[in-house]
Design a protein around this nucleic acid. Sequence first.
DNA 1: GCAAATTTGTGATTGTTTTCACAAAGGGCG
DNA 2: CGCCCTTTGTGAAAACAATCACAAATTTGC
Lengths: 214, 214
Amino acid sequence: MPPTDGEAERKIIPQAVIKRLSLYSRILQDLELENVEKISSADLGRRLGFNSAQVRKDLACFGQFGVPGFGYYVSDLRKNLRSILGKDRTVRVILIGVGNLGSALISYHGFTKQGFKMMWGFEAQPEAATQRVRSEVPIYHVDELESKIQGESVDIAVLAVPATEIQSIAERVVAAGVKAILNFVPARIEVPEEVQVRYVDLALELESLSYYVR
Amino acid sequence: MPPTDGEAERKIIPQAVIKRLSLYSRILQDLELENVEKISSADLGRRLGFNSAQVRKDLACFGQFGVPGFGYYVSDLRKNLRSILGKDRTVRVILIGVGNLGSALISYHGFTKQGFKMMWGFEAQPEAATQRVRSEVPIYHVDELESKIQGESVDIAVLAVPATEIQSIAERVVAAGVKAILNFVPARIEVPEEVQVRYVDLALELESLSYYVR
DNA sequence: GCAAATTTGTGATTGTTTTCACAAAGGGCG
DNA sequence: CGCCCTTTGTGAAAACAATCACAAATTTGC
Ligand SMILES: NC(=O)c1ccc[n+]([C@@H]2O[C@H](COP(=O)([O-])OP(=O)(O)OC[C@H]3O[C@@H](n4cnc5c(N)ncnc54)[C@H](O)[C@@H]3O)[C@@H](O)[C@H]2O)c1
Ligand SMILES: NC(=O)c1ccc[n+]([C@@H]2O[C@H](COP(=O)([O-])OP(=O)(O)OC[C@H]3O[C@@H](n4cnc5c(N)ncnc54)[C@H](O)[C@@H]3O)[C@@H](O)[C@H]2O)c1
């Protein structure tokens, strides 16, 4: 008998594949609104600039969703992708640091549209922040971080605090049980390796553009 | 005589290399402030989680900057990287759409710190935007886009308008001669292929995190 | 000023991702 | 109902990227 991995049968899927699945999912969302019933891998690829084989290979990581000679049922594939991406339930998000950037993020409706639930904001100066932002998301003092999270589980923490605070805030959200971080602060954070971290680094994007236009 | 490419001797450098060069450049900036004189590829790599050979290979795309048995002179390498990245002159940036997100971007000091110059904001409702934002960057009506750009050249346009407007705005900035776009709007834009486009897609990042925590 | 210790720059190697290409599956039209 | 056409799923090949490993160059310490 070959050694099975037990329940860890799911092989490691590259991040790039997951990002593309998200893109597929969004196209399918649009198609469903337009009442389009089916789509081929070639069409789906064309809309995003990918090769059709790439689309099929990406999907093949998770099973067989297509119908040969026909394509994919939009609604069916969308359902599957949502489930794969963990979006078949509400994904709970918090924001730490409701300053200039955080104020925009906390009231961003693109979140909700994609099925995320922005639970709370946390701030060193919650009064000033509450005044600044017009949004239904409650903003608490950062001291309440641990007690709030304890009550209800949180999936993802979005960080937009000053660079000096980032490591200590990261440690606090991790200690409180958060397993994924989206970091807008241009500084590397040290966290246990089971915690997923994504960096959004604006200046980096600008610099790479700067290279190509100089 | 082998066919030379004329002045197009510069081979195509992958985007990933350029991003890493930016990261190196930022580390070197910090080191210079700390008056560190030299650094090895191994040290530089360690600070970013890269292999030392990767660092050397990346740099080798552009020349020989190191001293065997010694390492790299911080200030020297930094100067070279800035020049490679096109940062040895002011890089001129404009922002279109000074709403929730744009308001944060227009007054972001991380820009300036990395040598970018935010020239102007353009808005459909410039009065409201000016009121909202406390920043020295002037905000004009979007109708003035073409005439302003005509006078002084612009390197990069940052787009943060509603999704419905994105294609038309993209076409206008391209027609006005802008060669690089940083797009925060989650919608693909059609532009001539010589125009460089980067997408910053927040919901995509959240979704990929969502997969790993589900 | 010489030998030992470093560290670069780079060809070779390994690993990963994308693309190709085609057999097999299924739908649709006559 | 059956044949033809389309499109999937997937091994094989190609392209691309990261890592290894080592000769060559240079510093450092004695
Ligand atoms: N503004 C932008 O467009 C932008 C773009 C990219 C990245 N960033 C990064 O995002 C971060 C925030 O930028 P910003 O422009 O919003 O700055 P900001 O100063 O406006 O916002 C920071 C907020 O964090 C709060 N804060 C400080 N310490 C805190 C703590 N310990 N816990 C909770 N809240 C705390 C402050 O009160 C403030 O409201 C920075 O690290 C910046 O580099 C900003
Ligand atoms: N708010 C966020 O945190 C966030 C995050 C990621 C992406 N985005 C994207 O960024 C874009 C802007 O988001 P937002 O939250 O700032 O929305 P917003 O409505 O607050 O801002 C859009 C601004 O663009 C202006 N505008 C409209 N048409 C224009 C035109 N033709 N020319 C110039 N300006 C015009 C509006 O007056 C408004 O001020 C959206 O596409 C959104 O999906 C926003």
